[in-house]
Every structure is written in C-alpha cells, then in structure tokens.
Design a protein around this nucleic acid. Structure first.
Length: 542
RNA sequence: GACUCCGUAGCUCAACGGCAGAGCAGCGGACUUUUAAUCCGUUGGUUCUGGGUUCGAAUCCCAGCGGGGUCACCA
C-alpha cells in the first residue's frame, strides 16, 4: 500500500495548480458523491446543516418500543427522531430498508414511498449513500420478520460522506490503513470499537479505584531536563526560548517520589512515557503508564493494591474477573491471593539453576547455557539472570503470579531486603506469560541512592546507553527524608491487551506511531502547495 | 538494526511468463416487510516506485519506498 494508501486517497491532478488554490481530482466514487451533495443543495437541502435534532438514541428507541410492546401496543406510541450513519441499504421497488448506527447501537429505518412521498423517496434512493449521516423521524414498530424498525415519515441529510465506507462483509483488513486512518477502521470494524471502549472503561475504573483509596491524581513534567526512573534511551528535544535540551520522560517515578518527600501520602499519575527504542508487538515508542506511590507501605502492600486494582478494572470493564487471553482461560479471582514466588525459586524450579550459587559472570553463563538458555558471550551477570527469567520462567506464568525479590544489580531504585542485602524488595506481576508492571519498596536512603547512581554511571561509561544518569536533585530530595514507601508502575497498554485479548500493542493504541509516507503520496497531498517552512512554527505566539 | 513475507479497482481478494478478473460498493433497470435481499445490465486499473532480463513481465532479477511477522534492545 505504498503510493497512495487506500480508502481515502486522491489522484494526482493533471490540471495545473492555479495561484493560491489547490486542485484535487477526486476519485470517480468521490466525485459521484460530491455531485450528489451539489444536487441536494440545488433541491434546497444543505448537505452539511449546522444542527441536528435528535430526540432518542437508537438504544433508547429500542427500549421505548419494547416497553410499549409489553404494554400491548404495536408501535412505540410516539414520534421520535434518530440520527446516525447509514450502514446498510436494501431497496425493493417502492420500499427502502436501511440501518443507521449511532454511538449506542443500530436501528433499521423502514421507508415507504407512499408514506414519505415520491420526492423524498427518490431523494433517499438516489442522493443518499452508505456512510452518510442522516436524521429520521417516525414511530417504531416491529416488521414481519420481527425487527424493531422506525417507520420513517421524514428523512434528512446531516452530513454527506464523500468517501465510501470499506467493504461491508470483510471490513477493513489492510493493517496499514487501519493504523494510519483509524477513523476508517472504527467505522468498518466493530471489534475495534469494542477494544477502545473497553480501554476507556479500564482507565476510568483505575481512577475510581485510587480515588476511593484517598490517592490524589497529580501531573508531573513530560519535558524533563534530566530523564530517569527507568532503564531506557530517551527522546531529546530543544526549547527555543530557554535554549536548552529537554528529554521526553521515560518514567515519572522520580517526580512522584519527590511528592512523597513533600508530604503527599498517596499519589498516582496516568501519563504517556516515551522511549526511543525498537518497535514490536509489545513496545510502542509512546505508551501509557500508571504509576502510584504510597507512604508507609511496602511492596507487600503494593501487591495487594495491584491485585485488587487489576481485578476491579476487569470487573468494571468486562463485567467479570475471568477472561480468555490468546486461548488461555484466566481468572483474576482464583486463586486468591495471587501466588508470590521469589525470582530465585522460580528460576530454580524451571531451569534447575540456583543463580546465587554462581556469583560471577563466567560460572552463571556456563550454568545457564547448560540448562538450555541462549546467552550471548559478554552478557553481564544481572542480564543473565534477566535472560533466565525471560527464557525459563516467563512462559509459564499464565495465571496471575507475583515474582518477587530481585538481585540488587537489576534494580537501582529499590530498597534492599533487611535480611539479604544482595536482593531488593521488588515484584513484577505476570499474567498471560507477560509482565504487566513493576514495583518495589522504594529506596529512601539518600546515600545508598547516590551509590546506586554512581554504579549506573560506571555502566554508562562502559557503554550502557540505558543506564540511568545521576539525578542530584532527586538525591537532594531524599535528603529531606522520604518515609518508607511502596511504588508501582503498570503498563496500561499491556493491561488493555490482556483484558481485550489483543496480541499487538498497536491494536490497543488508537493512533500508533508510523513512519512518514513519502511526500506526495498520502490522502489529499497532491496539488497542495509545499508547506511554507521556517517561520511557520515560530511566528505565532500563545 | 538483521532476516523474512507482502503491496493488483474505493474495499476484500484472484490471476504467478502469454488479452488484468471476481465479489462487495458504484451506475442503469425490475421488485411495497428486507437482513451479506434477489434478479438483469454496466462503469471503474500508473498491478507501490525506478531500473533490468525476455518476442512478451502484475508474475523473474536488482534497488528503493511502505507495511506485517520473527529476532536483537526494552516495559
């Protein structure tokens, strides 16, 4: 789908570009529809009127009819007005059947020539198309085949569509058009509408959950002078007036902990994080993260929070705590509570290797390889542990499971276990073979934190581009004193994938990042004067 | 970034070295309770772009562009 993707592309115009105007040649189908809009205008009907006068949604119309029918009536008993997009049309001589869809469902219009008049009937037949928005008035009734329909007495256009909707039976399949022109995908594919409606319910349920626990929702910087809180490469940008580099945040963790220092006891934020890394079915350069921090809590408290929150979100969004993910039946409420196993036990169980027995890189690498892991030579010790987790353990964690207690080397912001300083109080919730978050008892010893940052700087000097930079202001904040605190990050996209049974992160992001099309090949790009460069972005203030 | 598959009408897809097709949508017609309505007729193409091989290329080769998948990195 390279040159001119799909549904809504326009052809190159052969006409020359006259000064100050653009010449766009519409496709045959688009031109037909444009002419129909003109014809409507000539007949005195604005194809794009300013206002609609809907009295009922399709869902309300249906419910109203069923109430009247239960009371013994054969009609809805009142004249109502619906508004919606034409999604199907079947005409049979002097009768026209057409379904319209609004944000609440679909309803069939039953249009008879002898009831709305010859002129109006011919207008509906000849000038209205699939995809148009229309408004219809009449009374509801049930057809011979049993479908509740609107006996249409009046039908007007609300918005003439120039692009035809995609194929009615197969929908829109081309993934590139589906992602680039999500509006077309939403029109064509009901499943897609369901996924994004569910995503919205998940997010609002999460807010209700934390609001109910007296958390406050806060907003921290997206543009950060120094990035941190995760191991990742950032996007870099530049502020003109300040003449300064800013980084797009890779996490909000360090700011949220500053707020705990400041005295807020419970804070959460749902925001976009940006990581300048590879793109695949589990990673998007821009993704949505929930982070929440709670004073006087530790990671065991936070496990309770995660379990309750995820279960609540599922119940609210799906109406159930059980669902199917990629063929696996998963129930968030069983077992309860979710099992908690240490990383060490898990790796031992599924690989036979007890990594604490191999404290140096060479011996652990040999043991991991002997157990069947693929480990590249030169992989540092903590990475080998991480690899063993990915290769041996993760695929087995289908039912909800907390993996707890990670080696300190993997977790520069987490607090050491009191009885084992080589490990930190950290957990990751796994469901469906994937991790949906990360959490720990937060490190609040400023001097230990400074040491960890310095360790990271060594890694950085050794070439690890993802090692965290030293954030002296954050250390300074900790020097004011942060109470014992538990913190969690949950990937909203991943959680949504899980609860909507989507295997690709792009299918839960409305407008996923895509490579630019070559100039002159996108919709409406032909004949457009070239973008006028330099001062375009700078001259306008506010 | 590497490997691999894909790109044909508005959409869904055929044709795989020999005249570029079908279904849906569209257009014209029949039909006053249809449900992917049915029936008759019909319009519509830079086969992603640029080279090459060949008597002949949508098809084979090379390069580019865009997308999917796998791997690497990461959450």
């Amino acid at each position: 789908m390279a040159s001119a993707p799909g549904v809504f592309s326009f052809r190159r115009s052969n006409r020359s570009i006259s000064e100050g105007t653009m010449e766009i040649e519409l496709s045959d189908l688009q031109e037909q529809r444009r002419l129909k809009a003109e014809e409507l205008r000539e007949q005195g009907f604005d194809p794009y009127p300013t206002r609609a006068k809907r009295t009922h949604t399709t869902a309300e119309a249906l419910a109203g009819f069923e109430r009247a029918e239960a009371a013994g009536s054969e009609t809805g008993g009142e004249t109502i007005t619906l508004a919606g997009r034409v999604v199907s049309r079947r005409h049979m001589g002097k009768t026209l059947f057409s379904h319209i869809r609004d944000g609440h469902g679909e309803l069939q219009l039953y249009i008879r020539k002898d009831e709305i008049g010859e002129e109006a009937y011919n207008r509906a037949l000849k000038l209205f198309d699939l995809g148009d928005w229309v408004q219809a008035s009449g009374e509801t009734f049930r057809t011979k085949t049993g479908e509740v329909s609107l006996r249409t007495a009046d039908l007007t256009i609300l918005s003439k569509a120039l692009n035809a909707p995609p194929e009615k039976w197969h929908g829109l399949q081309d993934k590139e058009i589906r992602y680039r022109q999500r509006y077309a995908d939403l029109i064509a594919n009901e499943e897609v509408r369901r996924v994004f409606a569910t995503r919205s319910k998940i997010v609002s349920a999460i807010r209700r959950f934390f609001d109910g626990l007296d958390y406050i929702e806060v907003e921290t910087p997206t543009l950060q002078p120094l990035y941190g809180g995760a191991a990742a490469r950032p996007f870099t940008t530049h502020h003109n007036a300040l003449d300064q580099i800013f980084y797009l945040r890779i996490a909000d963790e360090l700011y949220l902990k500053r707020l705990i220092v400041g005295g807020f006891e419970r804070v959460y934020e749902i925001c976009k994080d940006f990581r300048n890394e590879g793109v695949d079915r589990n990673h998007s350069p821009e993704f949505t993260m929930l982070e929440f921090y709670e004073a006087f809590a530790d990671y065991t408290t936070m496990m309770d929070r995660v379990e309750s929150m995820v279960t609540f979100a599922a119940q609210e969004a799906l109406g159930s705590t059980s669902f199917v993910w990629q063929g696996h039946e998963i129930d968030l409420a069983n077992p309860k509570p979710w099992p908690r196993i240490t990383l060490r036990e898990a790796i031992l169980e599924w690989s036979g290797v007890d990594y604490v027995q191999y404290p140096d890189q060479e011996s652990l690498q040999a043991a991991a390889r002997a157990a069947g892991a693929k480990i590249e030579t030169g992989t540092v010790w903590p990475r080998i542990v991480d690899e063993m987790l990915k290769q041996f353990v993760r695929p087995n964690l289908i039912q909800p499971t907390f993996l707890i207690d990670y080696p300190v080397e993997l977790s520069p912001l987490a607090k050491r276990k009191p009885d084992d300083p080589t490990h930190v109080e950290r957990f990751q919730p796994y469901i469906g073979g994937g991790e949906i978050g990360n959490s720990f008892t937060e490190l609040n010893d400023p001097m230990d934190q400074l040491d960890r940052f310095l360790e990271q700087m060594k890694d950085r000097d050794a070439g690890d581009e993802e090692a965290m930079p030293l954030d002296t202001d954050f250390v300074n904040a900790l020097m004011y004193g942060m109470p014992p605190t538990g913190g969690v990050g949950i990937g909203i996209d991943r959680l949504t994938m899980l609860l909507t049974d989507q295997s690709t992160i792009r299918d839960v992001i409305l407008f996923p990042a895509m490579r630019n099309l070559p100039s002159g090949t996108g919709p409406l790009s032909f004949g457009l004067p070239d973008d006028d460069d330099d001062d375009a972005g700078e001259s306008d203030d506010e």
